[in-house]
């Protein structure tokens, strides 16, 4: 009964605040970006835009408080500059959780985020990579350029939301990029997001989301691996940590 009441309150509050944020915060962020634009280089403008998207993502994460709490645990501090962040993917909220990362990042996304009004427009403007719309060669070229500029690549290599605690197989494109650039790989384990909201539903459920950033995997430790071996190595590391995090729940 209490849980149902909390769920009701959470959803009323979350979606009301979501509406306010989209109507008020987004235009404010846009104005800030536009005001600064003429005085900055293209590179600085892109950086500024990505920071504003991070602010937006982070604000979304806190809309559910106190019913939804987010705990970020870092095994080795913040991600290094120009790294490849690899996370498991259970729910829509995972994309917003990436706003908790203290780095300039570009997400590798499937088609649907580009179709979301407002968000899709800014994602495209910020150079987010739509993996379904470009060839692997184009992906590797764009990804390498971003890493050279000091931008991190953030991705969910399962390719789609798992919708449960069972992690799907990984796609290898991201790991080919790592092998090509030598960028450190930061595995990210997200636990507790699977019902925020559940796949196919818009209902948010109260609870704790834990986001655990593992220590970066450096080029020295993976350069001799094949893309197939590397993707499974990272997947196994995330799976083992998730099992540890969820033991006894």
């Amino acid at each position: 009964m209490l849980f149902r009441l909390q769920t009701l309150l959470l959803n009323l509050m979350f979606y009301a605040l979501f509406f306010i944020v989209v109507v008020l915060l987004v235009p404010v962020l846009l104005l800030i970006g536009l005001a600064k634009a003429p005085f900055l280089s293209h590179r600085k403008n892109m950086e500024s835009l990505r920071i504003l998207i991070r602010v937006y993502g982070r604000s979304m994460v806190f809309l559910g408080w106190p019913f939804i709490r987010v705990r970020v645990e870092k095994e080795a501090g913040d991600p290094p500059k120009a790294c490849i962040c690899v996370s498991n993917h259970r729910a829509t909220s995972d994309g917003f959780l990436m706003g908790m990362l203290d780095c300039e990042g570009v997400q590798v996304v499937n088609l649907w985020p580009f179709k979301v009004p407002v968000l899709g427009f800014f994602a495209r403007l910020a150079g987010y990579l739509s993996i379904r719309e470009i060839s692997i060669e184009e992906f590797l070229r764009c990804g390498s350029e971003l890493i050279e500029q000091g931008v991190s690549i953030i991705s969910f290599p399962e390719g789609t939301r798992a919708g449960s605690r069972k992690m799907g197989p990984f796609h290898s494109a991201l790991f080919r990029l790592a092998l090509q650039t030598g960028a450190p790989i930061v595995p990210i384990c997200i636990s507790g997001s699977e019902n925020k909201p559940r796949k196919g539903s818009a209902v948010m459920h109260p609870g704790l989301i834990r986001m655990h950033l593992l220590a970066p995997i450096t080029e020295e430790s993976y350069r001799d691996m094949s893309p197939f071996k590397l993707k499974n190595f990272v997947r196994d590391r995330i799976a083992a940590e998730l099992e540890r995090m969820e033991k006894g729940e």
Binding site: P169, H171, S172, A173, R176, P227, F228, K231, N232
Partner: peptide, 14 residues
């Protein structure tokens, strides 16, 4: 190959 052995389309090329 895909669901049990974990290959994707790029792995198939390899």
């Amino acid at each position: 190959l895909f669901t049990e052995l974990g290959l994707d389309s790029l792995d198939v090329v390899d």
